[in-house]
Design a protein around this nucleic acid. Structure first.
Lengths: 342, 342
DNA sequence: ATTTAGCACTCGATTAGGGTGAGTGCTAAC
DNA sequence: GTTAGCACTCACCCTAATCGAGTGCTAAAT
């Protein structure tokens, strides 16, 4: 059986109503809610059909219906109205090109959570494909070096390394030249074991120390391969009774605190083909077990020079998809342009 | 009325029992629990006295007694047995001098939370009094400089700065010399406005750019004045019914997520005179409103060279103080020695 | 062939009442 | 000062009763 227009309208009404109230919605309500002018009995018949088709379900026999995941999915895919051109409430955020990206992202997560009343996460842009711009080894102390690496997008990495014996100025200079000529302009993910071995060989006679230095520099460059995640508003879930249950709340909070699972989610998202679009994961669709009762809406942003990250909003399945998608679109655009101007 | 020895013993028994069970404890239980060989009636009389003195209270008329904050305080101050020399369960932690302090602290917070079943926080050591070891400005691009500052304790700070016009090698060298001769060896908190103005004057003719550079470097040095806080196991609070209440849980989780309040707590703690000791804050004593139903146990650790930070354990008032204090003492010692050896 | 009115039915939620038991405070005896 | 005894309190649990929103089905109306 295919969904005719009336069934669509009814399903849409059920979803809308449930999003607002959070309570199962009955046939009488729909009968009055829509402009279909049908009696509750007719609606009941249609609802029975919709249930059989798996779009809605009854929490218990004598209750109204609530949308199933399949129902939400259909709603999100085909029935959601776009709030085109409506001025976004996020406008007040006033993103500035702040000095530290970390600060900026934390702020975004926070404002987003405060504006939406959902939990938010945002992954720092991943730098894998970016190129090295600058490497420098300097002596701090007699036996201490500091290595500074600057990557496209002005990401700075550094590491302190202690050496057994002193390294003289000449060696230091040689090392600097060696590192720069060989690594400059390379992408991060090109710095693999083979590359490092090659470097070590070129360094030649310079024994163990050199080898250590190169290793340390390589390590510093490749550090943070796992996504850095910033979160905010995890406690917003307590605003939704269906998530405030002891066990569920604990699980969700834990997911937000540990962050590994969120990182996986973000990584998945970045690799997905449609990641240019806003994505909606309903219930189990997100593959994170603790979110089986949540919906996750994600967007991919780009901070120029190919550095992409993921923004995610986590809330109950009955989240206000229209508002969330709209807000995310807006935010994504702001972030995308933020670093493009300069 | 002063507490005689018998009242002390009874109070102690009440606290011990309550810590274990989490249930109000009645006179009959105490009568059997202790070696005082007193009937429940006698205990009842004594308990009435203890209640009048404010050490215990009744949740409701026909229930047993639970310790009041004052009762807990007396217990912690005078009655707690030290688990001297018992092998600490934290031994498995195997702290290593990991490359990154951030990683180390996150790990400590995590392991501590997993071991104690309470929520944990740890503040990164504050560097205010530490001295600058090394400053270097380098050119990355034609119009881009990177400033790297190394501080005692091997803390590295850096910043990228964009300049309007190119700075030639000679100017760069001069700037480097200027910065190093003037700032090296100074403590962070000595780099104030007067200092910076003085520097700018010394730079003399070199116009706006130089001034900008100096400002940026000064900013980088003084960044992170607010304490960095790492937390773990916030969801452990769900293991204690008295904290799992919707409102309380939300408040506590929020405190752990926002971190500002925790930072304030850590800062308070660092400035307190007795901060060398393990500190116990019961209920309102901690001044963080959301923790009025919790106890907070803190320790100050020192990572050599005067860098001190705070570790905190947050749990219900009926937390296992003995175990927690013991564990913290142990951990504190491990951290204190960790960086001393080298 | 749809739609609708009517009605019996279901079942979660709420309320009320009764019993239980842990624990108390008080009194009188030891 | 201590203890046995006893009446009393009150949270907690269980059960039954009631309520009401909402359903599914049937039969009549369109």
């Amino acid at each position: 059986m295919q969904l005719d227009e009336r069934k669509m309208k009814i399903l849409q009404a059920i979803v809308r109503n449930y999003l607002e109230t959070g309570e199962p919605v009955g046939s009488r309500t729909i009968s009055k809610y829509t402009d279909l002018n049908l009696s509750s009995a007719t609606i009941r018949n249609e609802m029975a059909d919709l249930e059989e088709l798996g779009y809605i379900l009854q929490p218990h026999t004598s209750a109204g219906r609530i949308p199933s995941d399949k129902g939400y999915r259909l709603y999100v895919d085909t029935m959601m109205r776009e709030k085109e051109n409506e001025v976004s409430r996020m406008q007040e955020m006033l993103l500035e090109k702040e000095e530290k990206m970390e600060t900026l992202l934390k702020k975004v997560a926070k404002v987003l959570a405060a504006n939406t009343n959902y939990a938010t996460m945002i992954s720092a842009p991943v730098v894998r494909g970016n190129k090295l711009k600058f490497i420098q080894l300097s002596r701090v102390d007699a036996r201490q070096l500091v290595a500074v690496v600057v990557i496209e997008g002005n990401i700075i990495k550094n590491t302190i390394l202690n050496v057994e014996e002193e390294i003289d100025d000449e060696t230091l200079l040689k090392l600097n030249i060696l590192l720069n000529t060989n690594l400059n302009g390379l992408a991060i993910d090109q710095i693999n074991l083979a590359m490092i071995t090659m470097l070590k060989q070129q360094a030649g006679i310079h024994s163990q120390i050199i080898s250590d230095v190169i290793d340390a520099v390589a390590d510093a460059i490749r550090s943070d391969e796992d996504l850095e995640i910033y979160t905010s508003g995890a406690n917003n879930i307590f605003k939704y009774p269906e998530l405030s249950d002891q066990q569920k709340a604990s699980d969700i909070i834990n997911t937000f605190e540990e962050k590994e699972l969120l990182a996986a989610l973000a990584a998945d998202n970045l690799e997905s083909e449609q990641s240019q679009e806003i994505q909606v994961y309903i219930g189990d669709e997100s593959k994170v077990a603790s979110m089986k009762d949540c919906s996750v809406v994600t967007a991919t942003y780009e901070l120029g020079e190919g550095m992409r990250g993921t923004i995610g909003i986590v809330g109950p399945k009955r989240m206000d998809y229209e508002k969330v998608v709209d807000t995310l679109k807006n935010l994504k655009e702001q972030l995308d342009t933020l670093y493009k101007i300069t």
